[in-house]
């Protein structure tokens, strides 16, 4: 939107020695307190009937792909620590819900997931040595979309891998995420409810934990 414009009246004086205070992002001095425990009872998915069809479709495709042993599919992902992906960058969920709505409207099969502590990370030591844990990955078979999401989120690492089944691709080490409430929340609206990400966790895998 173009609601604001630039005042033409600002005279620019060029500071000769502008003091610069580097403030790298994501390096927070105090790590968030996070508890890690086994996922004993998976959270109930509350889906509207509108969306459940695409989930059914996705589940079916999981089955089909699992049956197609041998044929490998390419999965693209981006990854960062869970605090960034799900808590600080909470508005990222708007995009995921938008895409889910769109897939529902077009009856498109779901091809993107959030994976908490994905097992495939073991294959990427260069990533894991720079990654705070627990980590969350956004995985999709649509490489272009992941490229776009990398452009959006920027402070994430992107890679791809091949897997012969969806189960294999999205396998994760179950972890429950809890984030501290922000100390200084000044937005004129409440934070999104924690747990919004459960809608995007791979369904099949949740069931297999039960």
């Amino acid at each position: 939107m173009w609601s604001v414009t630039v005042t033409g009246a600002l005279g620019v004086a060029v500071p000769t020695a502008a003091a610069c205070r580097p403030k790298p992002f994501l390096i927070s001095s105090s790590l968030p307190k996070q508890t890690t425990k086994l996922h004993l009872s998976p959270p109930q998915l509350t889906l509207t009937s509108h969306f459940s069809s695409s989930f059914k479709a996705a589940a079916t495709s999981v089955q089909q792909q699992s049956d197609n042993k041998g044929e490998s599919t390419k999965y693209y992902f981006l990854v960062a620590n869970a605090k960034f992906m799900l808590d600080e960058e909470e508005h990222f969920q708007e995009q995921l819900f938008e895409r889910l709505r769109y897939y529902g409207e077009r009856e498109k099969e779901l091809d993107f997931w959030l994976v908490i502590e994905p097992k495939f990370l073991d294959k990427f030591p260069k990533i894991t040595q720079r990654l705070r844990r627990p980590a969350v990955a956004l995985v999709s078979t649509n490489g272009s979309w992941i490229t776009f999401m990398k452009l959006r989120l920027d402070r994430v690492l992107a890679e791809s891998f091949e897997a012969t089944s969806l189960d294999e691709a999205l396998a994760s080490n179950p972890t429950t995420l809890e984030f501290d409430k922000p100390k200084n929340w000044v937005a004129p609206y409440p934070k999104y409810e924690p747990g919004w990400w459960e809608t995007f966790l791979p369904k099949k895998i949740e069931e297999s934990v039960v």
Binding site: A9, G11, R21, P22, R155
Partner: peptide, 29 residues
């Protein structure tokens, strides 16, 4: 004008895309 100039001259925050930024090699994601 002097208020605006003073705001402009406040110490800035170094930033940029991680595809370019100098601090990228030290980033922990």
């Amino acid at each position: 004008a002097s208020e605006i100039l003073a705001a402009y001259l406040m110490p800035p925050v170094e930033s940029g895309s991680v595809d370019f930024a100098e601090f990228e090699p030290n980033l922990v994601y």
